Amino acid sequence: MLAVLSVVMLALNIYWWIIIASAILSWLFAFNIVNSGNPFVDSIATFLYKATEPLYRRIRRFMPDLGGIDLSPLVALLGIFFLQQVIIIYLYPAVASAGI
Rank of each mutant, 00 (worst) to 15 (best):
M1C: 09
L2G: 06
L2E: 12
A3V: 00
A3G: 06
V4M: 14
S6W: 11
V7R: 11
V8D: 01
V8P: 03
M9V: 10
M9A: 13
A11Y: 12
A11E: 08
A11H: 08
N13G: 10
I14D: 05
I14H: 03
Y15E: 05
Y15L: 08
Y15T: 04
W17C: 01
W17D: 04
W17T: 07
I18T: 09
I18C: 00
I18L: 11
I18V: 15
I19M: 00
I19S: 01
I20T: 07
I20C: 08
I20D: 01
I20K: 04
A23C: 05
A23V: 11
I24F: 08
I24K: 07
L25Q: 11
S26K: 13
S26N: 15
W27H: 08
L28E: 02
L28W: 02
F29H: 09
F29T: 05
F29V: 08
F29S: 04
A30C: 00
N32P: 05
I33G: 07
V34Q: 05
N35L: 01
N35V: 02
S36A: 14
S36M: 10
G37H: 09
G37N: 14
P39H: 01
P39W: 01
F40W: 09
F40G: 02
V41W: 04
D42F: 08
D42Q: 13
D42S: 15
S43E: 07
I44F: 04
I44R: 06
I44W: 07
A45D: 04
F47K: 03
Y49F: 11
K50A: 06
K50Y: 13
A51G: 07
A51W: 01
A51I: 06
T52D: 06
P54H: 12
P54D: 11
P54C: 11
Y56A: 10
R58T: 07
R60L: 06
R60T: 00
R60S: 04
R61G: 03
F62V: 15
F62Y: 08
D65Y: 10
L66C: 07
G68L: 06
G68K: 03
G68A: 10
G68T: 02
I69F: 12
D70K: 00
L71P: 02
S72I: 04
S72T: 06
L74D: 01
L74I: 12
L74S: 08
L74T: 05
V75A: 13
V75H: 06
A76E: 05
A76T: 01
L77R: 07
L77K: 09
L77S: 02
L78W: 05
L78G: 14
I80F: 11
I80V: 08
I80R: 07
F81A: 13
F81Q: 14
F81V: 01
F81H: 09
F81M: 12
F82Q: 00
L83R: 00
Q84K: 14
Q84E: 15
Q85A: 09
Q85F: 13
Q85I: 06
V86T: 13
I87E: 00
I87T: 03
I87V: 10
I88F: 12
I88P: 08
I88W: 09
I88L: 14
I89G: 00
I89H: 12
I89P: 06
L91T: 08
L91A: 15
L91K: 09
L91V: 14
Y92W: 14
P93R: 12
P93A: 13
V95F: 11
A96R: 15
A96M: 14
S97K: 15
A98V: 06
A98K: 00
A98F: 00
A98Q: 03
G99W: 07
G99Q: 03
G99L: 10
G99A: 10
